[in-house]
Design a protein around this nucleic acid. Structure first.
Lengths: 84, 84
DNA sequence: TATATATTTAGACAAATATCTAAATACTTA
DNA sequence: TAAGTATTTAGATATTTGTCTAAATATATA
């Protein structure tokens, strides 16, 4: 849970997730969507990956990132314990 | 959203929410549940309050804290946008 | 094989964060 | 009103975090 909340605690990373919600993207395509250096985006991707919120797959020269929505289920369950 | 995720990004604060889920507690009672100084707990309570995740009410000498579950709804909705 | 492209790793740095102790504020009660 | 209890505010400090540039790694292609 710690890793997940840590990963979600950053606006850039949450936006990355919203981009990946639409479709898989390469690291470069993700970086192009922000005014942040590629190394910084790479670092954000690493944090999201450690939290298991995204997965990556090498495709030739590119590394394609995908969202892993099943992890969101954990957050969902935690939140639901407060409902009611 | 930023304030909420920031507030949730700390194990101590998440535990405070779990305590308040059970029942309202004074600042001192909350502090007693942790091996952390009262000023530090006071600081955590302040962050939770700024995120609107808890409310406080003065009762004589004491300040009683309560959880505000309606805010959790915002997180819930955000999470749900990822559930395909 | 040499060059270009895609991405990450390394290392540095400023800003944010969690914690502490000491002091201040607010309320209660003898 | 003086003393005690509850809580916060102030100020300091060590750690974590987000960012950068420069360099390294990996793949593609001329």
């Amino acid at each position: 849970m710690n890793e997940i909340f840590k990963a979600l605690n950053d606006a850039t990373r949450r936006e990355i997730l919203e981009l990946l919600k639409e479709k898989d993207l390469s690291a470069g395509e993700i970086a192009d969507a922000f005014n942040i250096s590629k190394p910084s985006i790479s670092h954000h991707l690493d944090i999201l990956k450690r939290a298991d919120l995204i997965t990556s797959e090498k495709n030739g020269q590119f590394i394609i990132y995908s969202i892993n929505t099943t992890i969101m289920e954990d957050v969902l369950q935690w939140i639901l314990t407060f409902k009611k």
